[in-house]
């Protein structure tokens, strides 16, 4: 981090549109921001909001790459803005809201609503046998390696990058996306969930599920949490096929 290095002036083009304003239409607007050491898009966008245009809409919550709120297209690719260092980008770059999700305004999209729909549709919770748990008793045992494996898939932050990066999802609005498939893989792995393979097949054994996936692998390559999506979708595909034999 040398002090003498001349700082670049970033030219950030942002796709802007306020759906609440009947006179507005989608257009690009370019802002110039002086770069600082360790600057992330979180810092840069806040700078724009504070000093250039206070109506600029975007979503950050944890600003630490943990919560999945800030996904947007950076140079056309979905990613978490808060952990994108401007140093890794050219002097000129473009930002656009995640496609497919309901637009709230500018870079702010309503991924939460989409994800809620998905969760409800796939019933992403433990299905057990309705019996009341006695919380005073020792917990049920689980193989340590299995717990780790489940956690690995549980790391998904529902950021929506995998959906925005998937051509299938673009063509088929009912496609559950890698996020949905990963969730099924996660619950299928979990011995606490008592759903049968047929139940899972019912959920994703179709063109809106695993057989709709065309292995474009955009999901795998943009997932900010590096989930093993390719491998898990493949696993589901095998499992679903086996179930029909």
């Amino acid at each position: 981090m040398s002090e003498s290095k001349k700082q670049r002036v970033l030219k950030i083009s942002i796709l802007r549109f306020d759906p609440h304003d009947p006179e507005d239409f989608p257009h690009m607007e370019t802002f110039e921001v002086e770069e600082a050491d360790g600057m992330t898009l979180f810092i840069a966008l806040n700078e724009i909001r504070e000093h250039h245009d206070n109506s600029l809409k975007f979503d950050f919550v944890c600003r630490a790459g943990i919560c999945g709120s800030c996904s947007m297209l950076v140079n056309g690719r979905p990613t978490l803005a808060c952990r994108t260092l401007t140093a890794k980008l050219d002097e000129k770059f473009t930002l656009a809201p995640l496609p497919l999700f309901e637009l709230i305004g500018d870079l702010s999209v309503y991924t939460g609503k989409w994800m809620r729909g998905l969760n409800e549709r796939l019933e992403t919770w433990i299905h057990d046998k309705e019996e009341e748990l006695n919380v005073d008793k020792l917990e049920e045992k689980m193989e340590p390696a299995l717990a780790d494996e489940i956690y690995e898939l549980d790391r998904c932050v529902e950021c929506g990058c995998c959906v925005a990066g998937c051509g299938t999802a673009k063509m088929n609005p009912y496609f559950v996306g890698a996020v949905g498939l990963n969730k099924i893989a996660r619950y299928q792995l979990d011995p606490r969930d008592k759903r049968s393979d047929d139940d899972y097949y019912e959920l994703v054994g179709n063109e809106d599920g695993v057989f709709g996936c065309m292995t474009l692998l955009g999901c795998e390559d943009v997932c900010p949490k590096d989930l093993p999506l390719q491998s898990k979708i493949a696993y589901l595909r095998r499992m679903m096929l086996k179930n029909t034999l």
Partner: peptide, 9 residues
């Protein structure tokens, strides 16, 4: 695909 510049797609 053009926007993503993503090889597998």
């Amino acid at each position: 695909i053009q926007g993503m510049k993503h090889e597998d797609s």
